[in-house]
Amino acid sequence: MNLPPFQTLVDEHARSLYRFLCGMVGPVAADDCLQETLLAALRAYNGLSHDGNLRGWLFTIAHRKGIDHVRRYAKEIPSPSPPDRASPPQTVRDTDLWNRVARLPPKQRTAVTLRYLGDLPYADVASVMSISEPAARQNVRAGLASLRKDFI
């Protein structure tokens, strides 16, 4: 099997992985999670038995790293203060929207960020979240509806 050079994946997907992780854990932790995602992917890359959907594979790892981070954070700091996901990156002007995305229920937030920050097709959103494609669509729709309601 001919896998492309790992750097090709980094060049093509690091930006959207980072955007997705920003949506999931906030920009400070996203930096860390992106490093961990790429390190884990690189370690597993040589033994990879498929070269089909490498982007989906990367996002699945990133999703897991994001969940690990949220769990670890919840364990380490038993206070009600949320992870830094509420603080937008400096490059973001739409602070208000950012905060609302961060406050969506976890499944909706993950689905919305995979779809619109990670730029994934619904089939990949579904496989990353281990849910059906209709369920993925439903989570994105519900997330958008609740954001739209906040804005009008």
Binding site: R19, D94, V112, T113, L117, D119
Partner: peptide, 11 residues
């Protein structure tokens, strides 16, 4: 659209 335009760069 606005979500798509949220964070950029920084990676």
């Amino acid at each position: 659209d606005r979500i798509r335009n949220l964070p950029s760069g920084g990676h």
